[in-house]
Design a protein around this nucleic acid. Sequence first.
RNA 1: GGCGCGGUAGCCAAGUGGUAAGGCCGAGGUCUGCAAAACCUCUAUGCGUCGGUUCGAUUCCGACCCGCGCCUCCA
Length: 458
Amino acid sequence: MALRLFDSLSRELRELKPAHPDGVFRFYTCGPTVYAPAHIGNFRTFVVNDVLRRLLELELGRDKVKHVRNVTDVDDKTIKRAREERRPLWEVTREWTDKFHADCAALNCLPPHVEPAATEHIREQVDMIEVLMRKGNAYRAADGSVYFKVSSFDHYGRLSRVKERELQASSALAGKVHAADADEKEDVSDFALWKAWKPEDGDVQWPGPEATSGRPGWHIECSAMSKKHLGDTIDLHTGGVDLLFPHHENEIAQSECCNGATFARHWYHSEFLLVDGKKMSKSLGNLYTLDDLVAKGFSPMALRYALLTGHPRKQLNFTLDSLHAAESALATLRAYRATLPAAGGAPDAFSTVFENLHDDLNTPAALGAFFSIVNRGSGGIDAAAFDRVIFALGLKLDAPVPVKVQAPAAVNAIAERRWAAKQIKDFATADALRNELTAAGWSMLDRKDGYSLEPLKK
RNA sequence: GGCGCGGUAGCCAAGUGGUAAGGCCGAGGUCUGCAAAACCUCUAUGCGUCGGUUCGAUUCCGACCCGCGCCUCCA
């Protein structure tokens, strides 16, 4: 079953298949900048890419997909954070890289096969910059920084369809553009390949092109790491829509001018996650991290499910309610799974689910198809087929770990009295005591051999 | 100003030129002393507004209204 995906460059659905003779699909995803915990919007992209990775493995074979996702561990934000905290850059970036990995694991994302860090590929970046300088696509400014000359690349703007960026200068944002442009560029459109060392960079510096110390620009990092680990031409390059311009546009310019080959055969961008109808931002106070949601009592799996309920190329409005819905939906799937025999069902029982997944990664339609089948009952379905769907979506249906919250002594005492009343079938008293527990914010779950107490869900 | 996206039930969200998937919530029921869980049933004469094309439009076209994103921090 062909896997078709929208291509941001040609703006049409195209089949994903490896171009290289070895049959290995080369897949690059722009990873996080590690200076703070990633928020759930970041994770939308990574979860969507994880489903894509899983589908590719199912389609092409586990050893026929090579997924690379970088870590940006040097840039303005990481340097700023390190300076503010008076810590070495590597210490800050390692802390947040570790946190990112922990969050990804909690969300059941498969680790990429290679996870290159920008600071470990300085040489490769400098090499590319030097080639670009030799070819006349880059120039050194008075302060020692090196810029890419946008006018030297005819195809610039094809991806983002921004033909003449100079036009932007006369836009409402002109003031902002000029204010941020207090450097030595020949043209406002040009972008930094190498940033000359400045005092505020402290000891963050490396020998650069022609031995000028400084640090790499953001865009060159992905071009260099992609080239090193996947070659000059890759099969698929993905990221969030916000990276489409300028990041990906710049990557194309750098890589194609340097390598003289098509950079990526296919581009895919996942849309933004909105919270309460707006883009997440600190100023709006609607920015959530995984930890924020876990602290509210939600499971990471609920977030993963919620992130998949919207079409990846459409903005998805996230609400806490959607997390409640996700928890309930997962519970339904968990209960259904328990009724299935291990084998003996139709192998293609869930083919409609995969058809939707293969049709431009339509996860909401796939979930709809999934539940339609589940609602028909367990006849002819086995756990193996069910689990293939669960694998593709990357869900985990382990029973949620009960939150170990110790009830206050007073609540325990009421529960004990109610249990005793129930044993002697004094139901009037038992009901009255249940009401007391509810008023105190606790729920008492009866079993044959005892009971448990849980805080009432808000 | 330029580029792009969207407006479908209380909430989230698919989809099609031929009469609206799915999840959540809610209601009723089975079961349970009650509650919880599980299971069953029900829940949009209508898909932003106004026109047009058509035998027929939520689905195509046009205008308008509203919302969102990007335009060198940004998943």
